[in-house]
Simulated assay, not measured.
Amino acid sequence: MKQRNELEKIMFHPTGSDLKPYEWMMQPTRQQEWIDDKGIFLWLAFFFSEIGAGLYFVSLFYEYKTGLILGWLITLILGGVIHVLYLGNPLRAWRMIMKPNTSELSRGIWIIGIFAALGFLQMVTADSFNIVFNTIMGILCLLIISHGFATMNVIRALPAWSSTMVLPLSVISGVWIGHQIMQFMVAVSGSAALTSGMEVWAEVFFFAYFLCILLYAWGTWHSNEIGKESIKIQLSGDLSKISLIGVGGLGIVLPLIFTLIMWGGNTNGALIFLRLASIFAGDLALRYVIMKSAVYRPLI
Rank of each mutant, 00 (worst) to 15 (best):
K2T: 10
Q3K: 13
N5R: 12
H13W: 03
G16R: 02
D18A: 04
L19V: 14
L19C: 01
P21G: 14
W24C: 05
Q31R: 06
Q32S: 11
Q32K: 14
E33K: 09
W34G: 01
W34I: 05
K38I: 08
I40P: 00
F41P: 07
F41C: 15
A45M: 05
A45Y: 02
F46L: 03
F47M: 02
F47V: 00
F48T: 03
I51R: 00
I51T: 00
F61N: 14
G67N: 03
L70H: 00
L73D: 00
T75K: 09
T75Y: 10
L78G: 00
L78H: 00
V84D: 05
V84I: 13
Y86F: 15
N89W: 06
P90A: 10
T102Y: 06
S106E: 13
I109W: 13
G113N: 13
A117Q: 02
F120H: 08
V124R: 12
T125S: 15
T125Y: 12
A126I: 10
D127N: 15
N130F: 03
I139S: 11
L140E: 11
C141F: 03
L143T: 08
L143A: 15
S146D: 08
H147Q: 14
F149W: 07
A150D: 07
T151D: 02
V154F: 03
P159F: 10
P159T: 07
S163F: 04
T164H: 13
P168A: 13
S170W: 01
V171D: 04
S173R: 07
G174V: 04
M182E: 15
F184R: 12
A187H: 04
G190F: 09
A193K: 12
G197R: 02
M198C: 11
E199Y: 14
V200D: 10
A202P: 01
F207I: 12
A208Y: 03
L211S: 07
C212Q: 06
C212N: 05
Y216N: 02
H222N: 15
I226R: 12
K228C: 05
E229S: 14
S230Q: 09
S230F: 01
I231F: 01
K232V: 03
G237A: 07
L239K: 10
S243R: 02
S243A: 10
V253R: 01
L256D: 08
I257A: 09
F258N: 02
G265T: 06
T267Y: 08
A270C: 07
L274G: 01
R275Q: 13
F280A: 01
F280P: 02
A281K: 06
G282A: 09
I290C: 11
S293C: 12
A294S: 14
A294N: 11
